[in-house]
Simulated assay, not measured.
Amino acid sequence: MAFLGLRKWPTPARLLVLKPMLPFIAASGLTFYLVGALQDMGVKSETYAKDPKNPYAAQIAHESKSHH
């Protein structure tokens, strides 16, 4: 049965849909990881570790005390 003149098309296998998107999925995961790592490095840098506006200042101070 046609709906508005359109006929049914077979649904492609998941691999056929997923395969062309794999580079984008991998790049998204890598970008997400690297941005998170850079943010963590920036927050823990000496310049911003003791800044009162840093939301992680207390956590960083606690970590630095436990390492010494």
Rank of each mutant, 00 (worst) to 15 (best):
L4E: 12
P23C: 05
I60K: 01
Q59N: 09
S28K: 08
K19M: 11
L22T: 07
T47S: 08
S66L: 12
R7G: 14
T31D: 06
Q59S: 09
H67A: 09
V35C: 05
G5M: 03
I25F: 12
A2K: 11
G5S: 05
Y56G: 01
M41S: 10
M1Q: 08
A13I: 01
A26K: 02
V43I: 15
L38T: 05
F32N: 04
H67T: 12
T11Y: 02
V43C: 08
Q59E: 10
Y33P: 09
S28D: 14
M41K: 07
G36K: 06
S66K: 07
N54A: 02
T11W: 03
K44G: 10
V17H: 02
L16R: 03
Y33T: 06
F24S: 13
L34W: 10
M41R: 12
L6A: 03
M21F: 14
T11R: 01
V35G: 00
A57Q: 14
A58I: 06
I25C: 10
V35D: 00
P12S: 02
S64T: 13
Q59G: 07
Y33F: 13
V17Q: 04
A37D: 13
T31W: 06
T31C: 05
L34E: 07
G42C: 01
A27P: 15
T47H: 11
T47G: 12
V17I: 07
A37G: 06
Y48P: 09
A27C: 12
E63T: 09
A27H: 08
L30E: 07
A57K: 15
I25L: 15
L4M: 15
S45N: 05
F24W: 15
G29N: 11
E63D: 14
S64Q: 13
I25E: 12
T47A: 06
F32R: 00
V43E: 03
L34C: 00
L34N: 00
S64D: 14
G42R: 00
I60P: 15
T47N: 06
T11C: 05
R14P: 11
G5C: 11
V35H: 00
S64C: 08
E46V: 03
L22A: 07
L16V: 04
G29Q: 08
P55N: 04
T11D: 06
N54T: 00
F3S: 11
L6N: 02
H68K: 06
L4P: 15
F3N: 06
L18S: 04
A2H: 03
P20Q: 07
L22G: 08
A27R: 13
A2G: 02
F3M: 14
Q39P: 02
V17T: 03
H68I: 07
T11A: 03
P52N: 03
F3K: 11
L15C: 01
E46H: 00
P52V: 04
P10G: 04
G42T: 03
